[in-house]
Design a binder for these strands. Structure first.
Lengths: 193, 193
DNA sequence: TACAAATAAATGAACGTTCATTCTTTTTTT
DNA sequence: AAAAAAAGAATGAACGTTCATTTATTTGTA
């Protein structure tokens, strides 16, 4: 038990260090030696937990993505109305993107660069299904515009990444009033009137 | 004259090669040797045109950004109504993002990673002023929601980047009907009703 | 105009450094 | 004591950049 526990701690420290360093420097400017140092571990030890650098960053991506979607759907249940469900999910996602900055920033960088293997990317998308199901229901009920899921995502969820990145860069500060405005803009863009 | 011409060709070839290779591999996975090879030039020659690798990518970013904004505002004049002006600019941007894929992809990667110097990033933002002015006018006329420019950008322009990236990855295909839907979603999200 | 001298442009090879990964040894756990 | 985990040192490859030299162009002179 103690042994396993210790191992998991090291693994987590390695993933954490990877996220922090990749956020600050990018994938290829983050040497394994620095990851090891930040995790208080020898470079060689990384290879007991991960096959290689690519494997390490792929696994980091999948884990963060899983944590993100778990957070997003934590308070949603399928018996909610479409409008209510969308608002709940949207606000959870907003909360994650704007408060769990480190993880959100890491995901944004992974999603916008050739840093992650295509297969790991595919793996990460799967978990979004509940939202796609909700949209499907919304279209059938005539509440949501009959447009592609990519468009719905582009106009409701993705803008949060843009806001998060700019907040991180110190270009703007997003408070609760902004969130409410942003939610309204998101809903206005997809609701069928 | 002939001499200068030759130089500009080489410079352009270097910028072009940088864009292509960075799109495919990312900044740090793009060696100067490959850039040189693609531009049919010796590695050493790069340093006659640019200080170093960082300078090369900074300059590539600024040039592409300038070309992008020039394209965006080419058909817009200040005497247009807010609604008309917005539609014209938005559609030009959509056209650029979805058809000039290579340049648009390069900008997206620059804007979402720590690859570009902060000063070059600032330089790139400047050219967007006409759109900000238009929004200001729209707010004064009570046509556009009185929300921050970051929100307006996040819900109208930025979604196009998301769509472009996914189209590039082969995840979805954006045709004229999609563009019209997207424009409607963009306008719906920011217009004051 | 003809031709050398000077300058600029371009090159391939080489340098020093850094990196991901592996190897060998030491420490810890069972 | 045996086995597993971890460490640090070592390795070979790859990189950005520089250097010494060659090639091309321009300028000055007769």
């Amino acid at each position: 038990m103690a042994k396993l526990q210790k191992s998991i701690d090291k693994r987590n420290a390695l993933i954490k260090a990877t996220i922090t360093l990749v956020n600050n420097n990018g994938f290829h400017a983050t040497p394994m030696s620095k990851i090891a140092k930040m995790a208080n571990v020898s470079p060689a030890t990384i290879y007991l937990y991960f096959e290689n650098k690519q494997d390490l960053v792929n696994k980091a991506y999948i884990e963060v993505k899983a944590a993100f979607t778990a957070y997003a759907f934590a308070t949603y249940t399928e018996d909610m109305s479409v409008k209510e469900g969308f608002e709940i999910i949207w606000k959870r996602i907003a909360d994650f993107k704007l408060n769990k900055c480190e993880e959100a920033l890491f995901l944004a960088q992974c999603d916008n660069t050739p840093m992650i293997d295509e297969s790991s990317r595919k793996e990460g998308i799967k978990h979004l299904q509940p939202l796609l199901d909700l949209w499907q229901r919304g279209k059938e009920e005539g509440i949501i515009k009959p447009i592609s899921d990519y468009l719905l995502y582009a106009y409701t969820i993705n803008p949060l990444s843009f806001l998060m990145i700019n907040q991180e860069r110190g270009a703007c500060a997003i408070d609760n009033a902004h969130i409410e405005d942003a939610y309204q803009a998101a809903w206005d863009s997809i609701q069928l009137t």
